[in-house]
Write a protein that binds this DNA or RNA. Structure first.
Lengths: 234, 234
DNA sequence: GCATATTTGTCCGTATGTATA
DNA sequence: CTATACATACGGACAAATATG
């Protein structure tokens, strides 16, 4: 447990504290953020030996964590070859937007008065505007995702929340292999705001209409950019 | 590998053959069917030692399988206490139907002509009718689930398919602690048929209207029956 | 409330199979 | 084709937590 001398893991800090979750889940948490934040880029292999050493956990525990993330579609498990950070195909991008349209539109359409979860929606809009002012493009993308996560959360369903957490985690994998995330997210800021305004006055159907065209536009643009970005290796 | 003498596992059959999947996933498959078919009822603990012996796999491998099924919400993992077959609360039932309404209704509403996947829908209706004629009530429930899975599949999304596979697996847990599944499923047979007829002529919105009231009715009835069935242990 | 047995959590060593240089 | 590296899976070990009497 007190491994050799590497202390970069950041696992021991809350080890003795309140170990409410298992080691495997904490390891999975660490790896998940590493992946979604782009530290491990799509396509790279995650060696059991190396990462196990780096995080100071045994291979058994690490394999449990791998299994979790594989199930979340962040890793792919090739038998006897190891685990790799997922590389999404264009059909995956299309499917991600298919799910987004279903879930986000249905959540928004049902709105008839200013919804209970409107605070999160407005907050995400505000965060996005601030990120642009400060030219923090990474944060801009995050705020955009939070905005749409807040939209989905209007359905008030824990299972929908979890579903969309996974959907957006996958979507981040797409953004990480995309050329210019700034341009992509920036142009949708004002449209997010318009959607928020419709929700503010309880106009669900109006918001849905804006959202539907938003999602179509974003999908087409992303598919195009993605095809260009990944064409080199096809 | 050639364990003692128990051959009840059914794991070795395709062991030497084409072992394309890992042992943990095969173990998870076995346990999943055991659970969804009601062999392991909600609430029972699954001992690492016992099941590991019964299936002839090591604890490490079994724990990976447990981890998978926990992630699918079929098992719950209590730290240092083990894994248990999930017991759903009423709020879970409500949330399951919330997701069903979102997904199934959206899939059905989009229909404008007889959909490509109509064959599966019609087949499920036919299976249900046959099951009733033969008084096979277990099969009746299965056919009913297949019908609604086929509805969701009309959206043409792999991720939606996987989502609903999980949703219906959870729903089976509810059925297994319910008093009289026959009555429950039987009364919805004719309504399934009506929905199928609307789809057959490409009337998506009409089908959605029927489906929405169907889901509301089923939810209310199930919540009521479930509250009664689990009141004994509360 | 205490002592004991059982079970889980985690790690390690190792034999076997598989892929790749 | 051989060699090497790695993943797969097993079994054993011990600590820690929990359940039982």
């Amino acid at each position: 447990m007190i491994t050799s001398d590497e202390g970069q893991a950041g696992l021991e800090v809350d080890r003795g504290l309140l170990g409410r979750t298992s080691t495997a889940e904490r390891v999975a948490d660490v790896l998940r953020t590493r992946i979604t934040e782009g530290f491990f880029l799509p396509g790279v292999r995650l060696s059991e030996h190396d990462i196990g050493n780096a995080l100071g956990v045994s291979r058994n525990t690490l394999r449990e964590a791998f299994r979790l993330l594989t199930h979340e579609r962040l890793l792919v498990h090739e038998l006897n070859r190891g685990v790799f950070v997922r590389m999404l195909a264009i059909e995956d991008v299309v499917d991600l937007y298919r799910v987004r349209k279903i879930v986000e539109c249905s959540a928004v359409r049902a709105v008839t008065e200013r919804p209970a979860g409107f605070g999160r929606v407005a907050q995400a809009v505000e965060d996005g505007a601030q990120a642009r002012r400060r030219q923090r493009w990474q944060d801009l993308g995050t705020a955009n995702i939070h905005f749409h996560q807040a939209l989905a959360a209007l359905s008030g369903s824990p299972r929908v929340d979890e579903l969309m957490r996974g959907i957006f985690a996958e979507l981040r994998l797409v953004f990480h292999v995309m050329a210019d995330p700034r341009r992509f997210h920036e142009r949708y800021l004002v449209r997010n705001q318009e959607i928020a305004e419709r929700l503010d006055v309880g106009d669900g159907p109006g918001a849905e209409k804006l959202l539907a065209t938003y999602l179509d536009d974003a999908e087409h643009q992303l598919v195009e950019a993605y095809a260009k970005g990944t064409a080199a290796e096809a």
